[in-house]
Write a protein that binds this DNA or RNA. Structure first.
Lengths: 207, 207, 207, 207
DNA sequence: GATGAATGAGTTTTCATTCAT
DNA sequence: GATGAATGAAAACTCATTCAT
């Protein structure tokens, strides 16, 4: 069955590709792009250097594939969270909860992501990061949309620009989660999403 | 006049040191630590490579001196802002205004600072960044203190932990200012500090 | 034939390693460790610099591998010479003859060896040279053992400590051979080992 | 008194020169020519780098001046020892005793000297070391002369070439003294010069 | 004569990338 | 497709030497 043959080979190839990306993720997220050599990635992935170059044009390509894959996953999870829930408050609660779960379960990825994005501008050639930036803005605008809807439906006081409120919620959750995940002994992060929402909305909520 | 002689030489040396740090700041803030070579810093500072090494033990030492100097300056400005003003609201307004000014006038520095700090964990050897982290925590605690005072004096509702409120205000202003400064064409940042405060306090303020 | 494939590659790699060591030997023995650059070794070995570092961790590692290999070879030859021969006199004659042959046929090595050892203490990190020193002391003690046996068997007068006699014979042959080999036009070295032995033993030999 | 003025200045200059050479001796003898920087010599001598260059054309010149001064001192002491004493045996005893004293009292110098000479050929440009070699050969020939005289006067058996005997005595004392001085805890060196002479002459002495 | 800041050629070392097997 | 030896450009860093003060 040549069809199956091919598909088995394809699947195997895909698995190898994944192995390489997994190894790269662990190393890049711990040490950063410049402090990890292709040799180290190859060693960790248990492939030879040459094989890495069969899958990726160069080091940057490997990195950017990694980031793309990761940000896509994040994007899906977080935008998904924002679309579920009956009303705007529920959506925001969902967003906060999912974000906490995602962060906790993918610390590697999150650190790598922030290494790239929160520096605000990036170390690598522009272009690679543009896609990340676009997805980030998309997410913020989605979040802003939720605020806007809530305001229009009189769920919240329209006390500030929706985009502004979105930025606030995002920054706040980032800062809190990163602080908690980095020093877990230090300060545990809130299980209850309303801790975050209260900061923003107590008083904003239409009674 | 040997006294003057000496002092003139010393002053000149200090100026050269500053020239090098200035050149390094511009380059590091634009391209990042790993993407700038000592040769480039030397060229920009109009000195030879050897001279750089007469002032700094190695590349990391240069970088770390730069960061120390910058964070010290920030720290002074921002803690100063928090200590001026008649009541807590005034202190917070002050903080927001001064931060905006400082950010706008020192974009290089700010970008370099965030490249180091917001990446959450750092690329370079620990120790250098510990001082930065300590100063950052100090600032946050000072800010938290203002919230605490305000809550105790019934100026604000005690709706959340003071440290949490501090983190929120800090994240929010960072995100906004960086967003605005990076893409000035895109979105201007608010001149009025109350735009920030409203997000937090409308409804929190005791009427 | 994958087996042969592998072994051929391995053999080739070993040959390359040997080529590098050979080039290094010639240069180091003529100019000394500090006066030879890795570039020069690479050029002489007809490899690129990078290849040198695929075989040796750094310059010191290359040097130390070279010394280890050489001293091991010497050690084997000279201790071998001391174990052959019917009686003690014969063993000493053997030692003198073999040493002369070894010195003449490996002038490069000998010079490099003496550059390290006779300088009494060494330029490089300790550890590398400890092995050399240990082997040297081993050899001297073997030689001393021959004298001791000879004295016990009344082949020689026990006119001095065996270790002392060993040191004397070693120093004497070194000085003579090096003097001759360095300035061959100047003074040829004795073919007859008894020339050395006579100095020591005429009168010491039990008649 | 301008005469005195000048002479005081001259004396001072000479003292500075000596200070530099002393500092250089300590450093070079411990670490070797290549591992000591002019900066280190300047620091140890408590002068500036520039001052070193007022006294010596370059690093090599400093080194070679140092060696010249030291070998000259050695040469005087050892040739002196060979010229004192009533008969040849006495001269040789003298030589051995003086050499031991000189070695013990000038370990720095001796190590530096051997670093240069016993390596047999030298690290630096030829020329500097030729003078050392010439003086060494001169000394050996003087020593050989003593043996020759002793043989002619029937004090010793003419059992080997005088030059050969000289080389033997020299090598032997070098090896012994260096061994002792390097590891003083290990093996003390003989106080009695006859320990050396016995090795050579017991049986060679005309009874 | 003394100083020491400035120089820059030269050295070691790294590492992304290629390509013959 | 996999391999990994070979490459060499590029980087950090050193240090003998100069020269203006």
């Amino acid at each position: 069955m040549p069809k199956n043959e091919i598909s088995r080979k394809e699947r195997e190839k895909e698995r190898h590709r994944k192995d390489i990306l997994d190894a790269a993720l662990v190393l890049f997220s711990e040490f950063g792009f410049h402090s990890v050599s292709m040799q180290q990635v190859a060693d960790k992935a248990e492939f030879s250097i040459g094989t890495l170059y069969n899958f990726f044009r160069n080091k940057e390509d490997l990195y950017s594939n990694l980031l793309d894959k990761l940000t896509a996953r994040f994007h899906v999870e977080l935008t998904g969270a924002l679309s579920e829930g009956d009303d705007e408050i529920e959506k925001l609660r969902n967003y906060i909860i999912v974000k906490a779960v995602v962060f906790r379960e993918n610390l590697d990825i999150v650190l790598l992501y922030f290494r790239e994005t929160s520096g605000v501008n990036f170390n690598l050639k522009a272009g690679m990061d543009d896609r990340i930036r676009i997805q980030y803005v998309e997410l913020l605008e989605l979040l802003a949309g939720v605020f806007e809807d809530g305001i229009r439906k009189k769920r919240f006081h329209g006390i500030a620009e929706p985009y502004f409120l979105a930025l606030t919620l995002d920054s706040l959750t980032n800062a809190t989660l990163l602080g908690c995940l980095e020093n877990p002994e230090n300060r545990s992060y809130p299980q209850d999403p309303d801790v975050f929402l209260n900061v923003l909305f107590k008083g904003l909520l239409v009674s």
